[in-house]
């Protein structure tokens, strides 16, 4: 397992050295929370709204924004495979006798821990805004963040390990996938009374389950039973990790 540890160590070191960059990464979700969140929370400040949402809007939204941040950070971490391709470090990994699944898992685990930490920072910053957050749900929320990050990081690596060669191409594919996944997931609105076509997308969107589980942990409201969310996320993890390992094992220097 030394190779796994090596790559985990590398991701953590790199993150720690560039810790200033965390600010730029959580800025976007934070802006959503502050402007979108407070904007809607002010206008939806009527008793009926709390009945629909099950809680106040900012408390409803914070778990969604945390899930979004975890998702984006984990998913975009796949780009490090492309950086490594471009800056040559990938060859160093490919020529080593270590099993490739190990170095890949080290990378995915490292990125998932980083994504979880960023979610935690966002939680702390958002706490003063969301007055009904259940703080005791934090351990469950951290677990949910980590479990969903695994699958999303694997998805990012999967895309980066396929024939994607440039940073720009990865960015384009990432945006094409990320935006619909975030919007369809119910991170910003409740999933009730959606039109059928919308609901189909929501149902197959992995983000839906990450958001739902996170909201159950921190706000005690949700759409699916919690166990269903967790099972969906674990199936997702296994599927994406298996595919990512397969793709990475095939990747060459060409």
């Amino acid at each position: 397992m030394e190779a796994l540890k090596a790559m985990f160590y590398r991701q953590m070191k790199r993150f720690w050295r560039a810790k200033g960059r965390v600010i730029t990464l959580i800025l976007m979700p934070l802006l959503w929370l502050v402007f979108f969140g407070i904007g809607w929370a002010s206008s939806l400040n009527v008793p009926m709204m709390e009945q629909i949402l099950g809680t106040d809007y900012l408390t409803f939204m914070l778990p969604g924004v945390i899930a979004m941040s975890v998702f984006m950070t984990a998913f975009m971490s796949g780009v490090s495979v492309i950086w490594d391709k471009q800056f040559g470090f990938l060859k160093e990994v490919l020529v080593a006798p270590a099993p490739r699944w190990q170095s890949l898992m080290g990378r995915i685990l490292g990125d998932s821990v980083i994504a979880t930490i960023q979610g935690l920072i966002l939680f702390i910053l958002g706490l003063p805004l969301a007055k009904n957050i259940i703080v005791s749900g934090l351990p469950l929320a951290i677990t949910v963040a980590f479990v969903s990050a695994l699958g999303f990081a694997a998805l990012g690596v999967l895309i980066a390990s396929m024939r994607v060669k440039s940073f720009e191409a990865f960015q384009a594919i990432a945006n094409m996938l990320m935006m619909p996944m975030i919007f369809a997931s119910g991170a910003f609105f409740p999933l009730m009374n959606l039109p059928d076509w919308f609901w189909y997308i929501t149902e197959i969107d992995p983000m839906t389950y990450a958001v739902d589980a996170m909201r159950q942990a921190l706000a005690n409201v949700g759409y699916f039973p919690l166990w269903q969310d967790i099972i969906a996320l674990i199936i997702l993890d296994i599927a994406f990790i298996v595919l990512a390992v397969k793709a990475f094992e095939k990747s060459t220097v060409e």
Binding site: A6, M7, K13, R14, R17, F87, E92, A96, P97
Partner: peptide, 20 residues
Amino acid sequence: ALDNYLTAYENLYIHAKLYG
């Protein structure tokens, strides 16, 4: 094929671990 954002020692440390 070095990691520019790690130190010289860390680069070799990771390599050594990759070789078990």
